[in-house]
Simulated scan of single mutants.
Amino acid sequence: MKKVLRDIVIWLIAFIFLGIIIHFLNLDNREKNKDLLIIGYDDTFVPMGFRDSKGNPVGFDIDLAKAVSKAINKEIKFQPIDWTMKETELRNGNIDLIWNGYSINDERKKTVAFSNPYLKDKQVVITKSNREINSLKELKNKSVGVQAASSAMDAISSDKDLLNSIKGGAPILYESNNDALMDLDSGRIDAVVADEVLARYYMNKRGKDKYKVLKEDLEEETYGVGIRKDDKELLNEINYGLNQVIKSGEAKKISEKWFGEDLIYKGES
């Protein structure tokens, strides 16, 4: 009996010590990993975050996230996610940040904390630089292209006066903005409606002097970083980092690299 009791005590002591060791190992791992941020992104969203021919993450938001992480002394890992599940991934702790052309709106604010806005976007009208189209009114009876199921399609559909004035009373639908711009180049259509950030990217790649963007736009929005509502310290750090890279002019350089223009949000109304 004494031997049995002694063995039980030894096993209990060993179990307690094992638990203590595991506890401190976990603390150590958490301490080591607290400076690693997992960024969730859609790896097909050109030009914000996507994969190059070698499978590496590239894009405007990728470069900006790297600059911000350096400013706040954090390591980052880019995690491709199902974009429709982004808030769930964040809530479940699978990622720490949603950072990939993430539009700030009131509905999302109910479940996600947003950083300060860092990029301004709007739905714009692009036409050839040599065309005599300089206002929305001058699109009357003109053929207008738009990517199907896009924010641009929503914007043009909500402007009934514009919709009714264009040729056929409806835009011509395309699978991509690049397809629409190809038809604009060939003269098959007169104008394209698209997200400015996407439009600037494709214009920059194809030769931006060939195009012009009308001064009138359809809808405006801003992009921010999505963070769990209870991660207030991380929210403050991200805002600090964004402020640093914007003040230094680094964000401007990244914008010009991808869009050929400075689209960084600076608090304009």
Score class of each variant (00 low, 15 high):
residue 35 D to L: 12
residue 35 D to C: 13
residue 36 L to F: 09
residue 37 L to V: 08
residue 37 L to H: 04
residue 38 I to Y: 10
residue 38 I to C: 04
residue 39 I to K: 03
residue 39 I to C: 03
residue 40 G to Q: 02
residue 42 D to M: 06
residue 42 D to H: 11
residue 43 D to N: 15
residue 44 T to S: 14
residue 44 T to G: 10
residue 45 F to H: 13
residue 48 M to T: 10
residue 49 G to P: 02
residue 49 G to M: 06
residue 50 F to A: 06
residue 50 F to R: 05
residue 52 D to Q: 06
residue 54 K to T: 07
residue 54 K to M: 10
residue 55 G to A: 09
residue 55 G to N: 08
residue 58 V to A: 12
residue 59 G to D: 09
residue 59 G to L: 08
residue 60 F to M: 09
residue 61 D to N: 15
residue 62 I to C: 06
residue 62 I to W: 04
residue 63 D to Y: 01
residue 64 L to V: 13
residue 64 L to H: 11
residue 64 L to Q: 10
residue 67 A to T: 05
residue 68 V to I: 07
residue 71 A to L: 03
residue 71 A to P: 00
residue 72 I to H: 01
residue 72 I to R: 03
residue 75 E to P: 08
residue 75 E to K: 15
residue 76 I to M: 06
residue 77 K to Y: 09
residue 78 F to M: 12
residue 80 P to H: 13
residue 80 P to K: 11
residue 80 P to S: 11
residue 80 P to E: 07
residue 81 I to V: 14
residue 81 I to A: 01
residue 81 I to K: 04
residue 84 T to Y: 14
residue 84 T to E: 14
residue 84 T to G: 12
residue 84 T to I: 13
residue 85 M to E: 09
residue 86 K to Q: 06
residue 86 K to C: 01
residue 86 K to Y: 00
residue 87 E to M: 08
residue 87 E to A: 08
residue 88 T to P: 00
residue 92 N to H: 12
residue 93 G to Q: 08
residue 95 I to P: 00
residue 95 I to S: 04
residue 95 I to N: 02
residue 96 D to C: 08
residue 97 L to A: 00
residue 97 L to P: 00
residue 97 L to K: 00
residue 98 I to T: 02
residue 98 I to Y: 03
residue 100 N to L: 03
residue 101 G to H: 02
residue 102 Y to K: 04
residue 103 S to V: 14
residue 104 I to N: 08
residue 107 E to F: 12
residue 107 E to T: 11
residue 107 E to C: 05
residue 108 R to W: 06
residue 110 K to V: 08
residue 110 K to R: 15
residue 111 T to E: 14
residue 113 A to K: 09
residue 114 F to T: 04
residue 114 F to D: 00
residue 114 F to V: 07
residue 114 F to S: 02
residue 116 N to S: 13
residue 118 Y to R: 04
residue 119 L to A: 03
residue 120 K to E: 09
residue 123 Q to T: 12
residue 123 Q to Y: 09
residue 126 I to A: 02
residue 126 I to W: 00
residue 130 N to C: 05
residue 130 N to Y: 11
residue 130 N to A: 08
residue 132 E to W: 05
residue 132 E to V: 05
residue 133 I to L: 07
residue 135 S to V: 11
residue 138 E to D: 05
residue 139 L to K: 00
residue 140 K to R: 10
residue 141 N to Y: 04
residue 142 K to C: 01
residue 144 V to S: 02
residue 145 G to R: 05
residue 146 V to A: 04
residue 147 Q to V: 08
residue 147 Q to H: 06
residue 147 Q to L: 08
residue 148 A to E: 13
residue 148 A to C: 09
residue 150 S to Q: 08
residue 152 A to G: 15
residue 155 A to F: 05
residue 155 A to P: 01
residue 159 D to M: 12
residue 159 D to F: 14
residue 159 D to Q: 14
residue 163 L to T: 03
residue 163 L to K: 10
residue 165 S to H: 03
residue 167 K to R: 10
residue 168 G to R: 09
residue 169 G to A: 10
residue 171 P to Q: 05
residue 172 I to T: 13
residue 172 I to A: 12
residue 173 L to G: 02
residue 174 Y to T: 03
residue 174 Y to Q: 03
residue 175 E to T: 13
residue 175 E to Y: 11
residue 176 S to L: 10
residue 176 S to N: 11
residue 176 S to I: 09
residue 177 N to P: 05
residue 179 D to A: 12
residue 179 D to T: 07
residue 179 D to N: 12
residue 181 L to M: 15
